Simulated scan of single mutants.
Amino acid sequence: MKKAVIACLLASLVSVPVAAQQAQQAQQAQQSPQGQARQGQQGVASSGGFLVARGLYTSCVALEAGEQLACRSYLMGIADAMAMHVDNRWGPPVLCNAATLDVSQLGSIYADYMRRNPDKADWTAASTAYNALTERYPCQRG
């Protein structure tokens, strides 16, 4: 039953990046991870329908509540997937000390990461979200 609930939750998150990406196309020309205006671009660069980092960044820094919700939902889905790997013993923990994780802070964690890593703007949002979360909540290695 637990696996079915997780599968349904993850499946519902598939539509969040698509909806967010469509809404971000209009905002794309206005803002980049470097905070500079972007003009002349059409759409959000993606590969195989995947949301790219610049698109997620746009949602995370948007003033609209719906965009912020899309950002937090996407990032929470990534965090849940990271936890799922541990729950299923598919790998060691990669997200640690996250007991203090406040969902309302996810957008700013991601935006801060992207401001420091603008060269990753064309990476998939999932990759950069993973990197931002593991950087903020690292596990001790050794």
Rank of each mutant, 00 (worst) to 15 (best):
M82G: 04
A81H: 08
Q140L: 08
H85N: 15
P118E: 13
G40A: 14
A11F: 11
V52Y: 02
L95D: 08
R136A: 06
A4V: 09
A111T: 15
I6T: 13
R141F: 06
P138N: 00
V61E: 04
A19N: 11
K120C: 03
R54W: 03
Q25V: 00
S32E: 01
Q140C: 04
V44P: 05
M76A: 01
G35I: 00
Q140A: 10
A125M: 08
M114K: 01
D112P: 07
Q41C: 07
L63H: 06
L133A: 07
Q24R: 06
L10F: 02
P17F: 08
A126K: 14
S104M: 06
Q39R: 06
G43D: 12
V14W: 13
Y57T: 01
D80V: 07
K120L: 13
V86S: 05
F50N: 09
C71N: 02
A23H: 12
Q41A: 05
C8V: 02
Q25E: 03
G66D: 11
A129P: 03
M84S: 08
L13F: 12
S59A: 10
S32P: 04
I109T: 04
A99K: 13
A125C: 11
R141M: 11
G48T: 01
I109K: 00
C8R: 09
R115W: 00
Y130Q: 12
R54M: 04
A7S: 15
T128E: 04
Q68H: 01
Q36R: 15
A132M: 04
G107I: 00
P93L: 08
P33T: 15
M82L: 11
M1I: 00
A19F: 08
L133M: 11
A83G: 03
N131A: 15
S59H: 07
D80G: 07
T100D: 11
Q22F: 14
G91F: 02
Y137F: 15
L63P: 05
Y110A: 00
A4I: 09
G55N: 08
V94D: 13
A19T: 10
Q31N: 06
M114D: 03
G40Q: 13
V5P: 05
S108G: 04
P92S: 15
L9R: 07
A26M: 04
L56Y: 01
P33L: 14
C139S: 09
Q28F: 10
A11S: 15
D102G: 10
R72F: 02
S15V: 04
S15Y: 03
I6Q: 09
A62L: 11
T100L: 09
G107A: 06
S59P: 02
A26G: 13
N131E: 13
C60N: 05
Q22R: 14
A7W: 13
T134R: 15
M114S: 03
K3R: 12
P93K: 14
E67F: 11
A121P: 05
L56D: 03
Q34E: 13
A45Q: 11
C139N: 12
G91A: 05
I78T: 12
Q21Y: 04
P93Y: 08
L63W: 05
A121L: 09
E64Q: 14
V86L: 03
G49F: 02
G35S: 00
S104D: 05
L13D: 05
G91I: 00
M76Y: 03
D112F: 01
Y57I: 01
L95S: 10
D119G: 14
S15I: 05
I109G: 02
C8G: 09
D119L: 11
S46G: 15
P118R: 14
A11M: 13
G66N: 13
G142Q: 07
A37S: 14
C139I: 08
Q42A: 10
M84K: 09
